[in-house]
């Protein structure tokens, strides 16, 4: 079957089998390797991408489900001039990653939160990111990075 969807703002049309996950299609067929797969059980959050603005585990989400929808991966966050998204910049500035494997998922999950709730409390950030696991940072720099990005996005707009 063929699925058509918007990928990072551009229309794509790709031949898939019903059994293919969105992560397989993104990383293998479309060669967007910023999406990372770890637990394959919707627990770790590394493979998080946004579908119509909502975070999903692309490892356990059929590419079939993306038909007609709007998919955003980490590759779609910088603007047309190559400027990093405020969340990407704040993760760098606050040292919110070490090995970086969870980072794409963390940033996309945080983007879903900030798009819906531009000024979240710490409790809201922690609650929202509860399903994204990082084994390097201890989470405090990540919390700080999301707060910093929220402030930057507020000032920007």
């Amino acid at each position: 079957m063929t699925v058509e969807f918007q990928l990072n703002g551009e229309p794509v049309s790709v031949a898939i089998e019903p059994r293919h996950t969105l992560a397989e299609v993104l990383t293998r067929k479309l060669r967007l390797t910023g999406t990372k797969v770890s637990c394959e059980a919707e627990v770790c959050g590394a493979c998080t991408v946004l579908v119509d603005g909502l975070p999903v585990s692309s490892c356990t989400y059929l590419a079939y489900e993306a038909r007609g929808k709007n998919v955003v991966t980490i590759e779609g966050l910088e603007d047309k001039n190559g400027n990093l998204h405020p969340l990407q910049q704040s993760f760098i500035d606050e040292f919110a990653f070490q090995c970086g494997f969870c980072t794409s998922g963390m940033i996309l999950s945080a983007k879903a939160l900030l798009d819906e709730n531009p000024n979240p409390t710490d409790a809201e950030i922690i609650d929202h990111l509860d399903g994204n696991i990082c084994r390097c940072t201890g989470y405090l720099p990540i919390l700080k990075a999301v707060r910093t990005a929220a402030t930057a996005m507020e000032n920007y707009s």
Binding site: V56, S57, H128, G131
Partner: peptide
Amino acid sequence: VANVRVRAS
């Protein structure tokens, strides 16, 4: 329930 991703699908 579970996490934000599971709740969305």
